[in-house]
């Protein structure tokens, strides 16, 4: 049986669909107690990876385990891992409550659990309506309720914010964070870093089926040094003064400003004052995670700028 650790371990995972390599030698682990973001552009292999983890897709190579076991060895998987996946269907003629009762009996939990989770996701008043009439956001909530039926230790969510309104996203964020704080494991995929930035503590960033970054979000932030952008009256004087203080990461920008790394704006302003240089403008550059994300994942399916218009005729 599984070890109850709540650990997700993906090792050298590879999936080949015909000639297409969807996932290539992917490795990462997800620990309990935190929300981990699984990020990458569309087509990077996120969904395939999650489906391999959940035993729905057979890996070509490598392993994916939950609690030390592959999915099909978990015994009663519904009590260990709950999943919200894209393209997870509902029978349109079945009511939300009946849908949950079907899977409550499959997992072996009492029907009362179905009523509890439906209230938890805020669908209590729609419980007896047929799912066919549900909006995308309501279906996402119902999928989450289904995932929670077995009170699982591990939650895996593939693009759960899809179709949710801002209020729903805010609710989901709080919910997932408190779920993780109970010592459980939450893995949530997204193609937008900004969407999950406020939710996740750890990130796994993949591109073209490979791991690009894996670690705490804070570490990703620090991986890019903050820069101070300053417009002095005398560039050379300021640069010399800063170098004299041991600040060497100075770079001149095309717009005539200096970019100084490793110190804050106050330090730069003080140096300028001492050197008798006026400052016309100063700002601290914000760490743009989105830009980092693009740098890490760029290249895949990148579009090109439109070709410049060329005149064909000779009469112009």
């Amino acid at each position: 049986m599984h070890d109850g650790s709540g650990l997700i371990a993906v090792q050298n995972l590879t999936k080949q669909f015909g000639s297409v390599t969807a996932v290539h030698n992917l490795s990462f682990t997800v620990s309990p107690g935190s929300v981990t973001g699984f990020l990458g552009p569309n087509g990077a292999g996120k969904t395939t990876t999650l489906r391999m983890l959940l035993g729905l897709v057979k890996p070509t190579g490598g392993t994916a385990t939950i609690n030390g076991r592959p999915f099909h060895q978990l015994g009663q998987p519904g009590r260990v891992v709950g999943a919200v996946l894209e393209a997870q269907g509902f029978h349109p003629a079945r009511s939300a409550r009946n849908h949950l009762r079907v899977y409550a009996s499959a997992i072996g939990v009492p029907d009362a659990q179905a009523d509890q989770v439906i209230g938890l996701v805020g669908l209590g008043s729609a419980a007896d309506r047929k799912v066919g009439g549900f909006s995308l956001g309501m279906k996402q909530r119902l999928a989450l309720a289904t995932a929670l039926l077995g009170d699982p230790q591990v939650l895996v969510l593939d693009e759960p914010a899809n179709g949710l309104d801002p209020e729903g996203i805010a609710w989901l964020r709080t919910f997932l964070q408190s779920y993780a704080r109970m010592g459980r494991t939450v893995l949530i995929s997204s193609h937008l870093l900004a969407e999950v930035e406020q939710t996740v503590d750890q990130v796994v960033i993949i591109s073209r089926g490979q791991t690009m970054f894996y670690g705490p979000l804070e570490q990703l932030r620090q991986s890019q040094q903050r820069r101070v952008l300053v417009q002095p009256s005398d560039i050379n004087a300021l640069a010399t003064a800063l170098r004299a203080e041991g600040v060497h990461a100075i770079e001149q920008l095309p717009d005539g400003r200096l970019a100084v790394s490793g110190v804050d704006s106050r330090h730069v302003a003080d140096s300028a004052l001492k050197a008798g240089v006026s400052i016309y403008g100063i700002q601290e550059e914000q760490v743009d995670l989105e830009r980092l994300f693009f740098q890490l994942t760029s290249g895949q399916y990148a579009g090109h700028a439109p070709a410049p218009f060329k005149q064909q005729g000779g009469w112009a």
Partner: peptide, 14 residues
């Protein structure tokens, strides 16, 4: 066809 098979397989031992 209705893709409910996903949930069915996620909630069964095999």
């Amino acid at each position: 066809n209705r893709r409910t098979i996903t949930t069915t397989f996620l909630t069964a031992p095999s």
